[in-house]
């Protein structure tokens, strides 16, 4: 009886122990599942944070790319402006040089009232600033209507043929008052035939007093530029005025001397 009771208790204990074992196994399984779930959730949480970071970085990259495009555009604009400024600088330099040439030429032309000095200055300008090798300054003789050479360079005065108003290139320029430029400057002019390559009318307003006839240029001078044409214009007016003024001054000086001599004579008469 007692043995049966003990066996029964052992069985009961074994059963409880078995249930406890099963329960523990279940708990362990559950624990495993929960661990797995936690790991999953942690992964998922980490993933979403990475995506956020990528999004932020992508936005930043786009912003930087936009800035690069804007900077490139600005750089291009500045580069174009620079090119513009460089071109303008060259232009201003050229104008500056042209003005310096014109100023010097004009200053020199009006620096004297001596006729020979004026002619020398005209020659200096034509040689040094324009670059002519053979040329002549011819003036109209109002009594005969001849156009007579008064100063030359690279050729003798006698070698320059006289011209008459309206005849040939020199005569036509003197008549019309319009300067002449040969179509092909490289060919040059012909002194003997009285055919200059350039002929500038020396005018005071519309009144022509003479011409500058250029027959050849210095070998290094290939053609004319804007400054040369400006100098021709300046010579047309200022050289004419300078020549005219010098002539008038010389005449007045001569007259003054004559009058003074006459007055001296008159003063001397009563003494006798």
């Amino acid at each position: 009886m007692e043995k049966e009771l003990t066996t029964k208790k052992v069985d009961e204990f074994l059963e409880i122990f078995k249930k406890g074992e099963e329960f523990t196994k279940d708990l362990l399984k559950e624990n495993e599942k929960l661990r797995y779930r936690i790991a999953e959730m942690e992964d998922s949480l980490q993933g979403s944070a990475g995506e956020e970071k990528v999004r932020v970085f992508e936005e930043r990259i786009k912003k930087l790319e936009d800035e690069v495009v804007a900077v490139k555009e600005r750089y291009k604009r500045v580069e174009e402006e620079n090119k513009d400024f460089a071109a303008k600088y060259i232009e201003v330099e050229e104008i500056n040089n042209a003005l310096a040439n014109l100023y010097v030429a004009s200053y020199q032309l009006h620096s004297t009232l001596d006729f020979d000095e004026v002619l020398r200055i005209i020659k200096e300008i034509v040689i040094n600033l324009i670059g002519a090798e053979i040329f002549a300054v011819l003036l109209i003789d109002e009594k005969t209507n001849d156009i007579v050479p008064v100063s030359t360079e690279g050729v003798t005065l006698e070698a320059i043929p006289k011209a008459r108003i309206g005849e040939g290139i020199v005569g036509s320029v003197a008549k019309e008052g319009e300067s002449y430029f040969a179509a092909d400057l490289r060919e040059g002019g012909d002194v003997e035939k009285g055919m200059p390559m350039v002929c500038i009318a020396l005018k005071i307003k519309e009144h022509v007093i003479g011409v500058i006839a250029i027959y050849s240029l210095l070998m290094q001078k290939e053609g004319f530029n804007n400054v040369d044409y400006e100098l021709f214009n300046l010579l047309a007016g200022h050289a004419a005025t300078a020549i005219f003024s010098a002539k008038l001054y010389t005449q007045s000086e001569r007259k003054l001397t004559t009058i003074q001599s006459f007055l001296e004579l008159l003063k001397e008469k009563p003494k006798k």
């Binding site: 100023y103 010097v104 030429a105 020199q108 200096e124 040094n128």
Partner: peptide
Amino acid sequence: DSPTMRQLITFA
């Protein structure tokens, strides 16, 4: 020797 050239060069 040319006053014109002297003035122009001095200017430059």
